[in-house]
Amino acid sequence: MSEAPRLLFVEGLNKSYGGVHAVRNVSFSVAPGEILALIGPNGAGKTTCFNMLNGQTPADSGRVVLRGQDISGKQPREVWRLGVGRTFQITATYASMTVRENVQVALISFQSKLYSMLNATQRFASDEADRLLGLVGMEGYAARPCGELAYGDLKRLELALALANDPKLLLMDEPTAGMAPRERVELMRMTAQIAREKEIGVLFTEHDMDVVFEHADRIIVLNRGSIISEGSPDQVRNDPQVKAVYLGDGLVFGQHAEAHA
């Protein structure tokens, strides 16, 4: 591999659930500021990979190295403290709080004020919270109850939460699923901009190939747990093996090819 500085280095990850080999010997790396897409049909093992990266799921074998430090086997909260932010495929936010309060909780944790009991949260880092909401285009939503948000807005809120610890690496599992096409492009444009500015490495999964080809610097294709292709968008687009997988799975490429034709 090249000598470029590596932010994340993953080597030989494996995970089985009973008889299902969900992830098979997966290795890759992410450079700072790089936007890497992990694609593959449903059930390919993308979410399982994410879960092993941030400690949600213990790997059967393999190593995860973040900025030179082996983080295999650490708890999600420890991985977070090392600078990894994450969004979930099925959103996980605090439904009983307002949008701003959601972000405030992340900031409270980041500033290690979790056990502060006699101050009011209302004023705690509310400017910083609003700034983060501004980054994802949600400044107008700060006082809205989170339980009332539409799904696309929840996804944006998740991004703001993931950015609260000034991460070095962002893990985004289907960040635009359930969004309208225009929202998708907008969200990924925002993400790309933030990533470039702050040199954040981004690893994301996505079904919309327009989004993937427009924003990813590099693409990894996963099928049945194994990496079947890796390279620049053009390389991957023209890989016959990839075409075969996607043609078998429901023509995600085909639709767009026709639309563009």
Partner: peptide, 9 residues
Amino acid sequence: FSPFGYALR
């Protein structure tokens, strides 16, 4: 309403 209370919630 303190940071702890929010973390707990």
